[in-house]
Nucleic acid binder design. Structure first.
Length: 926
RNA sequence: GGGCUCAUAGCUCAACCGGUUAGAGCGCUGUCCUGAUAAGGCAGAGGUUCCUGGUUCAAGUCCAGGUGAGCCCA
């Protein structure tokens, strides 16, 4: 045992146990203290830019797994591009306005809209949002994400808000903005529109009536003299005055049935139900037609002098009703969309209190629900009521006052998607001007754009940017005025959007401003705010264009797949409308984080995984590794088992770094490195392989295929290094004299491996790579006393380049042969081990019989062959085919190097040593 | 219900235009080592490629239908 001290065993202060959750905190403060991000910016100034524009997460709550994944992927991309030499600043953003903040805040305050002033509420909402910006910022930073955290972009900052208004103004000037009607869920008690999240569904009893609409000319369908009716079903009789169409499904079968002296048109499949439910007794079915045939059929309104027609709609279902759907564009969501397709007016003769207005004629002043029985009565009188009953169904109610809601059309501001061919231009840009990863995104974007209706920009909410429009109090004319919008923009940029709600309209308008229409001088402000999707959608205008350090268009948007309809689309539309080109050159989407079964995470399922928890138990690097191990173009699973896998991969990579560092403790690259020509063949071979790894890994990073890159590195560490190269190298590293050429050759190789491997993994294992880098810097110059030339942080260094001088194809071919022989030897060794002939492979003597052609490369290795095979003795024999025999090694085991040899005991002082070790010891002690 | 997408070993991923016996790594089992040691080496077992049809000399791969899952919309 006395010879252990004469060996060069590995020494390193890089602990095997990472204890990442604590170590990472130290590295974070290193980055902070050394201002690494700022220094990268300095360093890369003037280089070609690569702009990844951050899609702003919503400033509410703690970060969840999806956001963690998203930020990690962005960070990997930015760090990779930076290492490649790009100037790639990352400015994180937050989406601060909107309903979720309102929602949470009202809940937290335990009050409703009526109990607090708009300004007071906005102040609180601001504090609330900023609180979460701060919280999330710390959580993102903890993941190791580099960026301009101290100065993010916030959609609630005055400058951003000003640009939102500016964008609205520019779009208005180009004719994209118009005022139209759209039905919204309306509470006439609270006199307000409600968002989906504010609706509570409760059971409610409603009338259920079947109404006949007289068909004007049915000669195409039946040659009867009896009157023909379209039969509809509704639970909202009060919407009948606003009926402007009847929808049918174009693919379903409809029949004309004779019932007494009348003919009814209804879906064939609904007939049995109707016979049972309302007791109609069909005499006979006259004819059956595909829904398509009914398209365009004209009918008269039962009690209003109006003619409308039948329209085809795919949403018509045969689960209830008659298959003929009463359509009132002002009072229903689907009705509204159908009306857009066919240019029907959005007719809604109901005021904010839920009363019919003057358009409704004799119903004027009557509340809609009170009008129900009156309308039913009228239908009955006129003979158009086929059946009346009652139905109890789930019906939307106001979450605050509990009263039943109605759909009611109100004036709103829209962005016209077909103006100036915007839709077509956007679709063309999607097809030709943007790189989509994965490519399926192109299709998804395209089909969405094809179908989408005009964009409703109005929101009847508190927390957001006011729509910069005023109305003449005298004639009601809406002033969408370039000059005024510009004023509002400037005031907003200065004081924030609160001013719009605070200041009286007179102080906002220029002196003497008068109505274009009637010359009136009294105005009121628009009360609605702009859709928050518009706010984030113009971030290219509010951030990329404004910030000198950034650039427009950006190189990459990288978000979850839900953003096809969200941010990708809103950004594209606004950019196309403003600048005639997309805001991004590339778009990368990732899937959603799901559980081990592929199911989405939900609180009720109890399968939610919290990123904070993973960071504190495993460390951020493990989370980053997990994100990079999976193919994120699809949904990505996470579970304890999957995390365990990430931990295993992490351990293998960390131990690789540890082995490399441990054997370089006495290696000062500045004075000890050998030139490439001086290296041993096996070392040259490994470096040649390393070039291949660098080349392949780089290609994978270029394609953002992180899982490919990680797998490559992992395989290299496992197959090339750990199980072969390192194993072979141990003898040379440990037992050779410290300064021997053989050992320095190995160390030179290890050095290159270490540098490259830490750089390759730095974008992903940022903390660990930085930790390792710190250790390497300490080693360099340790002996020569020179200062290290290495950058202070791995992130200030550059991506490894493939060194063509190190690529050696001949060597690869030769070694491929050697490795094949080795494989055979290993198999035989295992059998010998099972037969208890040997334990350790050093107890073996290998006899290899091979044809002359195969033998030569083995012979060339000389003494190294037994090192490569990690056996004590090798004998080569020429024979017809490859044959391997194992026997026990001859001689005795050297106490120092554990090899068996015959030359033990020749030195009286060191009877336990082999000749080689004797020499080594002499060198050491001299 | 509609648009887009996915399904290969227990897990994470491969398999170019359709072409031998579907490959890796991890995990698992066995084993060696005790000088990377809460490490490391070696070997082995593991697959009805979600199901059902079809096209083809040939299908994990192409087509149709189904099942399960995800995002978006309704």
């Amino acid at each position: 045992m006395g010879y252990r001290a004469t060996l060069n065993l590995p020494r390193t202060s890089l602990p095997m146990k990472a204890n990442l959750s604590q170590r990472e905190v130290g590295i974070l403060s290193f980055w902070e203290e050394k201002k690494i991000y700022q220094r990268i910016r300095e360093e890369r100034k003037g280089r070609r830019k690569y702009i990844l524009h951050d899609g702003p997460p919503y400033a509410n709550g703690n970060i969840h797994m999806g956001q963690a994944l998203n930020k990690i992927l962005k960070d990997v991309a930015v760090k990779y591009k930076t290492a490649q030499g790009f100037d790639s600043p990352y400015v994180p953003g937050w989406d601060c306005h909107g309903l979720p903040v309102e929602h949470q805040l009202f809940k937290k305050l335990g009050i409703n809209k009526n109990k607090i002033s708009r300004l007071e509420f906005r102040q609180k909402a601001r504090e609330y949002a900023l609180h979460f910006v701060d919280k999330q910022r710390n959580q993102f930073k903890r993941l190791g994400v580099f960026g301009r955290w101290e100065e993010p972009y916030l959609t609630l900052s005055p400058s951003y808000e000003g640009e939102v208004i500016d964008a609205f103004g520019r779009l208005a000037k180009r004719g994209y903005i118009y005022r139209g009607l759209k039905p919204v869920r309306w509470c006439f008690q609270c006199q307000t529109a409600l968002a989906e999240a504010e609706i509570e569904y409760k059971e409610r009893q409603s009338p259920s009536i079947y109404v006949k609409f007289p068909v004007k000319d049915s000669s195409d369908l039946a040659s009867s003299h009896l009157p023909v009716y379209l039969l509809i079903w509704t639970t909202t009789p009060w919407t009948l005055p606003a009926n402007l169409a009847i929808a049918i499904h174009p693919q379903h079968q409809y029949c004309l049935v004779q019932v007494d002296k009348e003919i009814l048109i209804l879906a064939k499949d609904r007939l049995p139900f109707l016979e049972e439910e309302i007791g109609i007794k069909p005499n006979r079915i006259l004819s059956v037609h595909k829904g398509e045939k009914l398209k365009g059929l004209k009918y008269n309104h039962p009690f209003i002098s109006r003619q409308s027609e039948v329209l085809a709609a795919d949403y018509v279902s045969l689960d209830e009703g008659t298959g003929c759907v009463h359509t009132a564009p002002g009072h229903g969501a689907e009705d509204y969309l159908l009306s857009l397709e066919h240019n029907l007016p959005v007719y809604s003769p109901v005021d904010g209190e839920g009363k019919f207005n003057s358009q409704a004629g004799e119903l004027e002043g009557i509340k809609v629900f009170e009008a129900n029985p009156l309308i039913v009565e009228k239908l009955k009188q006129k003979g158009y009521l086929l059946h009346q009953g009652k139905v109890v169904h789930s019906y939307p109610h106001c979450w605050r006052c509990g009263s039943a809601l109605i759909y009611r059309a109100t004036p709103q501001w829209f962005l016209a998607v077909d103006k100036h061919n915007l839709r077509q231009k956007a679709i063309r840009a999607v097809e030709n001007e943007v790189e989509w990863i994965p490519p399926a995104s192109r299709m998804r974007m395209g089909s969405m754009l094809k179908e989408r209706p005009d964009w409703c920009l109005s929101r009847q909410r508190y927390w957001g940017v006011g729509i910069p429009v005023v109305y003449c109090k005298d004639c009601g004319e809406a002033m969408v005025d370039e000059e005024i919008i510009d004023r509002i923009k400037n005031l907003t940029s200065k004081y924030g959007s609160d001013f719009w709600f605070k200041e009286p309209v007179e102080r906002i308008l220029p002196r003497g401003y008068s109505c274009r229409g009637c010359g009136g001088e009294r105005f009121k402000k628009e009360e609605d705010i702009i859709d928050v999707w518009f706010e984030s959608g113009v971030s290219h205008h509010a951030v990329l264009v404004q910030e000198e350090t950034l650039g427009d268009p950006s190189d990459l948007y990288l978000e979850g797949s839900d953003q096809h309809r969200g941010w990708f689309q809103t950004s594209l539309l606004t950019s196309m409308a403003l600048k005639d080109r997309p805001p991004y050159r590339g778009v990368l989407t990732h899937g959603f984080v799901v559980d081990s079964e592929g199911r989405k995470m939900s609180k009720s399922q109890g399968n939610v995984v919290d990123p904070q928890e993973i960071v504190s138990t495993h460390g951020a690097d493990v989370l980053r590794l997990w994100a990079s191990l999976e193919d994120y173009t699809q949904d990505i699973r996470i579970s304890a088992e999957i995390l365990k896998y990430a931990v295993e991969v992490y351990r293998r990579i960390r131990n690789t770094y540890r082995f490399l560092l441990g054997n370089l403790y006495d290696f000062d690259y500045l004075q000890d490195a050998l030139s490439f020509d001086e290296l041993r063949d096996i070392d040259k071979w490994v470096l040649s392989h390393l070039q291949e790894l660098v080349r392949d890994t780089t290609a994978s990073f270029e394609k953002f295929k992180l899982h490919e890159a990680v797998h490559l590195v992992h395989l290299f560490a496992t197959n090339e290094l750990s199980s072969f190269y390192f194993d072979v190298l141990k003898d040379r590293l440990y037992t050779f004299p410290p300064d021997s050429k053989g050992r320095k050759s190995a160390q030179t190789t290890l050095w290159h491996l270490l540098i490259s491997l830490s750089k390759l993994m730095a974008p992903i294992l940022s903390f660990t790579a930085e930790e390792v880098w710190g250790h390497i810097r300490k080693i360099e110059g340790c002996a020569s006393g020179k200062a290290s030339r290495m950058e202070e942080s791995v992130f200030l260094s550059s991506w490894p380049r493939v060194d063509d001088n190190l690529v050696n194809e001949n060597l690869e071919i030769v070694w491929e042969k050697i490795l094949r022989v080795r494989e055979g030897v290993l198999k035989e060794l295992e059998e010998a081990r099972e037969a208890k002939t040997i334990g350790s492979s050093l107890e073996a003597r290998v006899t290899i019989t091979a044809p002359f052609s195969e033998l030569s490369s083995l012979k060339d290795l000389g003494n190294e062959l037994k090192e490569v095979l990690i056996v004590s003795q090798v004998q080569l024999e020429e024979g017809e085919e490859l044959k391997i025999r194992i026997s026990r090694a001859e001689g005795q085991k050297c106490e120092r190097c554990w090899n068996y040899s015959l030359d033990l005991g020749t030195d009286k002082e060191h009877p336990q040593l082999c000749g080689r070790c004797r020499k080594a010891i002499l060198k050491c002690t001299r």
